[in-house]
Design a protein around this nucleic acid. Structure first.
Length: 248
DNA sequence: AAACATTGCAACCGCTCTAAT
DNA sequence: CATTAGAGCGGTTGCAATGTT
């Protein structure tokens, strides 16, 4: 037999999170760390499924999240990475500190897509739209001519139309030939979000940060429309403690 | 000021891959 | 080895906020 189910669907709450629920989840994770999500709702006293808790935490409650629109540099990076990786938002997000895959995906769909179309660039292929029209009859030979990332794209095989399997099977050649792809796919690269943890055994979190949050949690009751960065909690990132990134 | 349209984002859904049994 | 569930991912939806008529 397999594992226990993550949650019984009966009695599981859906929809927007309340301030009270957020508070419970934050308190639980700061106290116990990120353990198995299946157990989180029960232990934290939430009527949510573990999946919902994980999403809420990773996309909204994590204290290292940046809020607000992506900067121009971030946008450029997203466009470049999208040209190479396609819609692999988690991979893209891993290269943007403090940004989530969901946030980048949303930003892509609502802002960047439109910008590229306005510029006459196909957001899927990253090639000029007029060229796309001719593309079927006369497949383009040679590098994409996107003005946005032509310098980066020229040496690469377009990857966005490949399946995951195709991609992985082609990794050997692509990665070996291209330093950036090697960096993106390689094991050695440190993914900013990958190591984001609150080890329960970690004295720093159980003492310093947890108490910091506890002291500052009251605003949850007053204002659910909080933005962690707005409240100055990005200082957590600059506290210089290696534990904040799960290192050390 | 009201009605309607559009936009932006949080959250959910369903799928795949991985790991436990 | 087969089965099952967990975790994570990308796509999609629902709805509140904002803009326009």
């Amino acid at each position: 037999m397999g594992r226990q189910p993550c949650c019984d669907k009966l009695g599981v709450k859906k929809g927007p999170w309340t301030a009270e629920e957020d508070k419970k989840l934050i308190n639980f994770i700061l106290t116990n760390g990120q353990c198995c999500w299946r157990a989180v709702p029960k232990l934290a006293g939430l009527l949510r499924c573990g999946k919902s808790c994980r999403l809420r935490w990773t996309n909204y409650l994590r204290p290292d999240l940046k809020r607000g629109l992506l900067t121009e540099d971030e946008e450029k990076l997203v466009i470049d990475l999208h040209a190479r990786l396609g819609n692999r938002w988690s991979k893209i997000a891993a290269k943007l500190p403090g940004r989530t895959d969901n946030e980048i995906k949303n930003h892509w769909n609502t802002h960047i897509k439109k910008k590229l179309i306005k510029m006459g660039i196909d957001p899927v292929t990253h090639k000029p739209l007029h060229q796309e029209a001719n593309h079927i009859a006369q497949p383009a030979v040679g590098p994409p001519q996107s003005t946005v990332h032509q310098s980066l794209s020229s040496a690469l095989r377009p990857l966005e139309n490949c399946s995951s399997d195709e991609l992985r099977s082609s990794d050997n050649t692509s990665i070996d030939e291209d330093p950036l792809m090697s960096c993106l796919w390689g094991e050695e690269v440190q993914l900013i979000d990958a190591s984001w943890k609150f080890p329960s055994s970690d004295g720093y979190f159980s003492n310093t940060v947890a108490s910091f949050w506890e002291e500052n949690c009251e605003w949850f009751s007053d204002c659910h429309e909080f933005r962690i960065a707005d409240l100055g909690l990005e200082c957590l990132e600059s506290m210089g403690n290696p534990d904040m990134t799960g290192k050390g």
